[in-house]
Design a protein around this nucleic acid. Structure first.
Lengths: 200, 200
DNA sequence: CTATAATACTAACGAGCGTTAGTTTGGAGA
DNA sequence: TCTCCAAACTAACGCTCGTTAGTATTATAG
């Protein structure tokens, strides 16, 4: 179980790291934001890097939890991919600060945590690539290299954290829909496009 | 005219800022890398932020110079867009360190430089959006919102700096080709796709 | 050769950094 | 009521930060 104070510190650190970056945020900045004296933070955490690590773990957990149930779902590969990308985008848009740290600040982890993080990130991306490969194999997608197609999808999706405004007119779901629509149009096979066109 | 030493300092700073980040790079780190004493840097520059600013200006110049001649070229909107995106990707892949700083570290500029930078960046993106809008108007692209389509294109392209390896098997041009092919497939109108299919 | 100016060096400044040791506080359980 | 322990405080540690002042070195032009 995690104390309330510790959660508050973690949340605040996440916000500050996202806003100013890890190295530009001092422990005293953080302490001020949670109304503590600098030294008091160390009653709750072991050091600055633990904060970064925990934030990254939390974020990785979110991504993992979002797509795992989809992977085993009973649906066509392309449909599962669509749902997974949707979930991925929703995690980013719903946890902008966490996503910013996840994409920006992980490189300030010292070894061995840095490697651990990267391996986990890689496994996650492999899962998505598997779905893309399946969609190609099933004929729903045209003959693209799954590696490249996955990179394209993730590139477009991950950039979200740079511009998405939660207070803007579009919800995370709507943003996800638009992106998926545009990307998938380029990846779907001709036959699939005709089939979809007939439904509409 | 710029002295050789100053160029060397700028190049090295670019590399270090890209590698470790602006705040995690000290002036003494930089001095060591160019084999000077810390204080000696100040014979050439006014301060740390000037380095960041000059690096960003240089990068912005590269992007600008790459697409400007294309904008006034005599070709169809979609073709001009294709060339512009190609050029954009080539700038990123050919100046990975500069691109990394350009996308990552600009936020550490103090005002008013920060605003100046963002305005310039915005103007650049508007130019690309204009091409997208033209491509829609000409019927080459299907009826997508230029704002979103441009965001998609830039998202996919800009993510390059996170993963592209200049020593890998693919040249910048090849990478650009693959991405453009996948993205444009999703944006082109049905008629355009048929026309292209007939050529092949 | 000499004057000049650019370049680099040394040493230090005040400030802030992450972290720690030791102490005080305050509330919960015996 | 007393004990105990977590939580917060104060003060300081050693270090690094960006930057500057003052001085020495070097190359160049007259």
């Amino acid at each position: 179980m995690q104390s309330e104070r510790k959660t508050q510190i973690l949340d605040t650190a996440e916000q500050l790291f996202a806003e100013r970056g890890y190295h530009a945020t001092s422990m005293r900045d953080l302490a001020r934001a949670v109304e503590l004296q600098g030294g008091s933070l160390y009653s709750h955490i072991s050091g600055k890097e633990e904060l970064l690590w925990r934030i990254l773990e939390r974020a990785a957990d979110e991504f993992h939890a979002a797509i795992t149930p989809i992977l085993v779902r009973d649906a066509s590969p392309a449909e599962k991919l669509r749902q997974a990308v949707h979930a991925h985008v929703r995690v980013i848009a719903g946890n902008l600060d966490a996503a910013t740290v996840y994409f920006h600040e992980w490189r300030f982890l010292a070894e061995p945590r840095r490697s651990t993080f990267l391996e986990r990130r890689n496994r996650y991306e492999q899962a998505l690539r598997g779905l893309v490969a399946d969609a190609v194999a099933s004929g729903e997608f045209r003959e693209v290299d799954p590696k490249w197609a996955t990179l394209l999808i993730l590139s477009a999706a991950n950039w979200l954290y740079q511009w998405y405004d939660p207070d803007g007119p579009l919800s995370a779901d709507e943003v996800a829909d638009r992106f998926i629509e545009m990307i998938f149009a380029g990846l779907q096979s001709q036959a699939e496009q005709v089939a979809l066109a007939m439904v509409t």
